[in-house]
Design a protein around this nucleic acid. Structure first.
Length: 652
RNA sequence: GCUGCUGUAGCUCAGAGGUAGAGCACUCCCUUGGUAAGGGAGAGGUCGAGAGUUCAAUUCUCUCCAGCAGCACCA
């Protein structure tokens, strides 16, 4: 046994421990096992931390050596090294470019640069070429620990003000780690690979250039960000690029056009012109939600679109969101001044007005007021995105007026309500994020404890998992956000549940308690879909346009093969329509191939082809979207099956 | 809102300082064809809007509008 201060014991994943000199590096450890491992090694996990092979280990620890086969670590290192290599390439090509930061992100990395000239798409090719040169040089990666003053001096001398600012923003006064890829230097936490040649040169691609604010602050400089994707092998890169192509095909803006669902135009930016097909989805979904809400104990109401600023001032929205409201000024006759109104950006204050009419008793609580509330918000132009982020939208909004003691039960009831709806709409999984008290808040700690406790207990009562988002709640209360994952792994916030004692206070809502005195109710803001526009966008992208049959705007096309079958086609359509199926005839003078192609492109789920044989036998030939084979079935059977399939899930 | 890019026929796109083209879609004619595009003809555009440079602008410059990507924002 060596003396305690110079020998340490390292435990390997298989449970074996070996003794090493203190200060040994993971690289040395790998070399001590075999020369081939020394070559293949890329990093190590030491006591759970990701370690560079060059960092000294001073204490007893567990250790696992990583190679390119360890996907998680390999991806991180490859992407991180590529960020540095890209920054080096950019500075080699354009030496007056200032570097800032370049983190690893999902599937790749980005790096932000400050350069007077904008990068062009052609530049990406140049940079990529230079990066490959750097990789081929197999330049060693070197690391040193510097004290701050030296690092700051270094960056000041090299004219890198962003790096100076970064160092000054790092709390504490610990020394900093510096890295070199060849002669190119960057401030970096690490870890990194051992030399640039360890980066697979054929498994990365520079994707795009975009603006990004320095430190994410819109008051500061706009930098140029270059995004790249990288993997451990070129097949994985190819798979990723394929996935992106698939995602592009599902884009609701493209499908919306192809399926003739809606359009938007310059005169009404961020607002939807729904076409018959899209509006069929919308109303079918709304009818469904209306039935679910009624069954769930909600009372539906409707409130005005244009509301005087006085109400928005009282609610506090005028002060905070005036910039984002559509203002409507009206010159009223004989009035001393113009009436200033705003299109309602949200429904809550209006719902409190409904609550406030007449005296409410504790016996009325919980009172659940629902509205398909059409809201209009002047969203920043750059935020608009198809029908997913719009200026005019309709929420499936509701507010539950209740006592503090009723919050937990209402919350649990809502989670189950929402889960049931998501399930019906084809989303099996969703994620709950629980946002708790922020730094700046109103209300006593005692009250926060109670309300947060109620939400947590409610989630647990439903047996669901959640992730905590400490500090992300509103200033007046905690909230739950519900996230859906679509078919290609993208995550969307839809549902929400928010506890609000503030607005009832501001707008003077009260109820008479058992004690005969006035009390302040809590208000629970909640939505399942969020907005119909956004949710329909998600439905389209999630299903790639192949919506569940009951939601498909065009469910069945009955197509004649010969014109002698046209009369029978009309019979079939009538039979289907009588069974509440959205069926239409296609008796155009076109070949069946043509009709099949056209309706397949339009994502019609069922095509029924009808020729001489079908007329003779009172049958139809069924072809389902995406299937090649067809099946001959009796008309009566098909009508029954499709009639059932067309029924919304809550009515089955 | 910020940075960059884009805007030509319903859609996808080509084009050039001398007032425009393709494919699909559309209309008409021929074709009655059995599961992803049968053939022919025709019609369709103030080249996003406004200003400037020029003998001449859809093309070059500027401003505005809208869209796209990212950032910031999302009650």
């Amino acid at each position: 046994m060596a003396p305690k201060d110079t020998a340490i014991s390292l435990t390997f994943p298989d449970g074996n421990a070996r003794s090493f000199e203190a200060g040994v590096t993971a690289g040395d450890v790998a070399a001590s096992i075999s020369t081939s491992l020394r070559k293949k090694a890329i990093s190590a996990t030491v006591n759970g931390a990701h370690y560079d092979l060059a960092w000294p280990i001073e204490e007893d620890a567990s250790i696992a050596i990583h190679t390119m086969a360890d996907e998680e670590q390999a991806n991180e290192l490859v992407r991180h090294d590529l960020a540095h290599i890209m920054a080096r390439a950019v500075q080699e090509i354009w030496p007056d470019t200032k570097v800032t930061i370049g983190p690893v992100i999902e599937n790749g990395w980005y790096y932000d640069f400050d350069r007077a000239e904008p990068f062009t798409p052609e530049d990406l090719g140049l940079i990529e070429k230079k990066m490959k040169e750097i990789i081929n040089k197999r330049d060693p990666v070197r690391t040193e620990v510097w004290d701050r003053a030296r690092a700051i001096k270094h960056y000041e001398d090299n004219g890198e003000p962003y790096k100076v600012e970064l160092i000054e923003a790092i709390p504490g006064d610990e020394p900093l780690r510096m890295y070199w890829h060849g002669d190119w230097q960057d401030l970096c936490r690490g870890p990194h690979l051992q030399h640039t040649g360890q980066v697979p040169g054929d498994a990365f691609k520079l994707m795009s250039i975009a603006g990004a604010y320095w430190r994410g602050d819109s008051d500061r400089a706009m930098l140029q960000r270059i995004y790249g994707v990288a993997f451990t092998g070129k097949e994985k890169l190819r798979a990723h690029l394929n996935m992106l192509e698939e995602a592009a095909k599902r884009d609701h803006r493209k499908l919306g056009r192809e399926m003739d669902l809606y359009h938007m135009q310059e005169e009404a930016p961020g607002q939807v012109f729904w076409h018959p097909n899209g509006w069929t989805i919308y109303t079918t979904l709304q009818d469904y939600m209306r039935r679910k809400q009624r069954a769930g104990g909600y009372r539906e109401i409707n409130t005005p679109q244009v509301v005087n600023r006085k109400l928005w001032e009282a609610s506090g929205h005028w002060e905070k969101y005036q910039e984002h409201m559509f203002i409507v000024e009206v010159e009223e006759e004989h009035a001393a001044e113009k009436a200033v109104n705003a299109l309602k950006p949200m429904n809550c204050p209006c719902h409190v007005q409904v609550f406030n009419q007449g005296l409410k008793s504790y016996r009325d609580l919980p009172l659940r007021l629902a509205e398909f509330g059409a809201c209009t918000r002047y969203e920043p132009s750059g935020a608009l995105h198809g029908i997913m982020r719009v200026r005019g939208f309709t929420q499936d909004d509701a507010h539950i007026f209740c006592t503090e003691d009723q919050i937990e039960a209402e919350c649990a009831k809502f989670i189950n309500f929402l889960a049931d709806i998501y399930d019906d709409l084809g989303f099996e999984k969703f994620e709950i994020k629980f946002a708790t008290r922020p730094e700046k808040r109103v209300g006593s700690d005692e009250s926060w404890d109670h309300v947060e406790g109620a939400l947590e207990a409610a989630i647990k009562a439903t047996g669901r998992e959640f992730t905590l988002e400490p500090g992300d709640g509103a200033f007046y209360g905690p909230k739950l956000d519900f996230y859906l994952t679509d078919a290609i792994g993208r995550v969307w916030q839809c549902g929400t549940f928010q506890v609000d004692p503030n607005l009832p206070e501001r707008l003077g809502a009260t109820y008479i308690g058992e004690d005969g005195a006035k009390h302040r109710p809590y208000m629970l803001h909640r939505a399942c879909l969020g907005s119909f526009e956004r949710f329909i966008g998600i439905l389209i992208e999630n299903s790639a346009g192949k919506l569940p049959f009951w939601l498909a705007p065009r469910q069945v096309v009955v197509a004649s093969i010969i014109s002698d079958a046209n009369d029978y086609v009309e019979d079939v359509v009538a039979a289907l329509q009588a069974a509440c199926v959205r069926a239409e005839a296609d008796v155009r003078n076109e070949k069946i191939n043509y009709k099949v192609r056209e309706h397949s492109v339009a994502k019609v789920p069922i095509i029924l082809a009808v020729g001489a044989r079908e007329v003779e036998d009172r049958t139809v030939t069924v072809r389902r979207l995406g299937e090649k084979q067809t099946k001959v079935e009796a008309l009566a059977d098909v009508t029954e099956t499709l009639g059932r399939d067309a029924t919304p899930p809550d009515l089955l």
